[in-house]
Design a protein around this nucleic acid. Sequence first.
DNA 1: ACGGGTTTATGAACCGGTTCAGCGACTTCC
DNA 2: GGAAGTCGCTGAACCGGTTCATAAACCCGT
Lengths: 341, 341
Amino acid sequence: MRRPTIADIARRAGVSQAAVSFALNGRPGVSAATRDRILAAADALGWQPNTAARSLSAAAAGAVGLAVARPARTLGVEPFFMQLISGIQAELSERGYALLLDLVEDVHAEASVHRRWWAERRVDGVLLVDLRTGDPRPEVLREIGMPAVLAGGPDPTGAVPGVWVDDARAMTAVVEHLHGLGHERLAHVSGPPVMEHSAHRAEAFGAAAGPEAARAATDFSDAEGAVATRGLLRRRPRPTAIVYDNDVMAVAGLSAARQAGLSVPGDLSVVAWEDSALCRLTHPTLTALTRDAFRFGAAAAARLLDLVRHGPGGGAVGDTEFELPELVVRESTAPPRPNGG
Amino acid sequence: MRRPTIADIARRAGVSQAAVSFALNGRPGVSAATRDRILAAADALGWQPNTAARSLSAAAAGAVGLAVARPARTLGVEPFFMQLISGIQAELSERGYALLLDLVEDVHAEASVHRRWWAERRVDGVLLVDLRTGDPRPEVLREIGMPAVLAGGPDPTGAVPGVWVDDARAMTAVVEHLHGLGHERLAHVSGPPVMEHSAHRAEAFGAAAGPEAARAATDFSDAEGAVATRGLLRRRPRPTAIVYDNDVMAVAGLSAARQAGLSVPGDLSVVAWEDSALCRLTHPTLTALTRDAFRFGAAAAARLLDLVRHGPGGGAVGDTEFELPELVVRESTAPPRPNGG
DNA sequence: ACGGGTTTATGAACCGGTTCAGCGACTTCC
DNA sequence: GGAAGTCGCTGAACCGGTTCATAAACCCGT
């Protein structure tokens, strides 16, 4: 059976199509009585707006996009993303927007997806994650003029407003926790320095733990996390605590330490940057920095919709700070052994 | 600057809009020379079709939907989903389709998302995962007539074609592996019996391992996986091998066994149904049943696009079987100790 | 009773593509 | 040489909404 259109509603309610449109969109121009009659007719017919038609005249897609440039392998293991997407989703569907998802190879592919989406009018804006140094995306977005919000900003070029977390302050809190336990030789296993947020954390770690503190950079994978851990544990004097930039590497580091004959937290304390079920599955359970990825996603989505609906002028301007992550202390952090090196 | 439309191309090439449309879509009705001229003009202007306009006249959205009814918590930890989505994506974007994602509470919410998407003409079809017993979705889809494919079928009601994996045969292979090692007392920790695929596996386990083999049902979470493990290990005689329905529970079971003073694989062999980085992060590494979730997703997407483009009549009919999962033997399975009674 | 303002409703244009009937011009065939 | 068919292209309708100029109906005060 053919899907009902506003013409069907108009016929049924005995009014013009224009009146139906006004009534359905809550605009002035129809009396209360007529409005009710129209709404009743629409309801009786089970009418739903045709997105294509609406998009065509409104010049708005009613959807936002998220293109992610990370290997699916990594994405899958980190619960963070799904939580983030879930939060984005919640905010969008509440306001009647849909989410377009694309998983691509790299940021250049992501930029061309953005271009295509915008040219095809598939989306009204996009969310960005994982800003890199020299990232082509902000420039492309400014060039084509598409609304965008960076989840995990701020964007140093200032082209894209961000919803961001103060990683530096969080890192300071982590280091203070370890200092408070009596640790003096800390180490940091970071992600790729090309990732802005990873670089920020590494920098903050250096500032808080001292320039002599050991660091190692990885690609966020469990494999490189293990390699980095083995490297750090060979140092003399040996670090007594390691901070990992994600949960996957922390778990891998745990295994590496055990294989090196070290006990956690007896010989080595471990902190994971992102919390997840993973951190509670291990033995010992991992002390972790937890943030509400769901609400983070929701906040970023809300900011984007603001931008989409009110333009760069209206609503909030510039970057929005999100609440500080909280350190959940579990079994993997303890005071260092007195004889510990 | 205004985005170019076919009218702009027509003007530039000195032809009618209709000719432009024919040329751009590779239809007959224009000479080769004219076609070239039009394509050159389109290229020069950087034209891209407006999705809304195209959808409106073609009565097709150029997108497919995936609504997932699982708590985000669970979703995040299982790499399977991201791999699946990634595979779906790859297939779709190759054919110019977009993916709409929605994360919802339960299958009823999912069914209403399907209704809305279809009514709004947002998608041309949907993919289904996690079929439940008495699932409302196939019936709703048949009612509204929307193309759909079940990833993980087959659908027992026959309303929705499926791309499926022969879980029963895979389970038999797992049991044979354990029997081959000398295990005689096997146990199975399954997901919720209300999940069709989980029920199938449990059934196949019973058939292969014998009716006296121990089973426990869970909600797929690490918590219930640990509880089920403790319960099974209290039995006398104790099982010497446990098969877990996902990787998360297998890891949790590993911890539970260790806490109960048992060594793996010395006292207990462990097999995980789904493979992931998780299985390689633990100590010992986990023997796991691995399937190519990426290609599985791609296969399901391809099947759906077939349905969308050629209708239920054309192309493949009914269910499509996907290749059998492969058992990757790692450290967690070994012959039982002779005294292990 | 009448001018001016407001409320309510309509017809028609418009968004950007697709599609189809129709019309010259050109080829083919007898 | 003329009928029939094919090719290349155009004009206009159409998809299903939104929007705006305009008009009819109504209200008010004088």
